[in-house]
Amino acid sequence: MIGKLLPNSVYLFLIATGIFLNLAIVPVKAESEPPVLITYTYEHELLPKQGSTPFLTIYSNGSMRAVFPSNMKLSGVRNAQLSPSALHDLITLISADTMQGLNTETIAEEITLRQAQQEQIGNAGGTMHATMDSTTTIIKYQQVQSNSTTNIALKDVTSMASQFPEIVNLQKIKGLKNTLQNILDTSEWVSTGGNL
């Protein structure tokens, strides 16, 4: 098994040659889980903070685990396997130079600044926007090249990205979030029988 994160080029090579796929079907013992590539979850204002939203973990070999809360259709702990191409795309996405060290604080400040401007425009008769019942996106991923960790925690990513298309890094976060949400929504999840 891959003991630690490998350079991105190695992942791409493994996927391209099919080796990675073969590795992925080897049973994985809990104590030898591959390194985590990325995690995705969110909080929502209408829901209790703990245990009410899904939590997705994608490992470096493309294996995935999701914990769905009891009020979701897929309630329970479930496993799935990301296809080699999807894993490749995901690694490519988070390995891009521009995705390294994304600073959520800076993005939030940019949003705040623009919202203040927007409010002034609104007070003067222009268009105002409001997003009621927010979702806070929480993503953490490993930069395979630098072996650094990036943390993202940002509110109302989709609606903010719509309102402020000029904030490039916000668009990137939206793209990553949508990718992960799509993985969560469309993967063939198999129950582990595990309880929440």
Partner: peptide, 12 residues
């Protein structure tokens, strides 16, 4: 949305 949302535009 992760659950439910109302997204609104408005004007004075």
């Amino acid at each position: 949305t992760g659950f439910a949302v109302c997204s609104i535009g408005g004007q004075n």
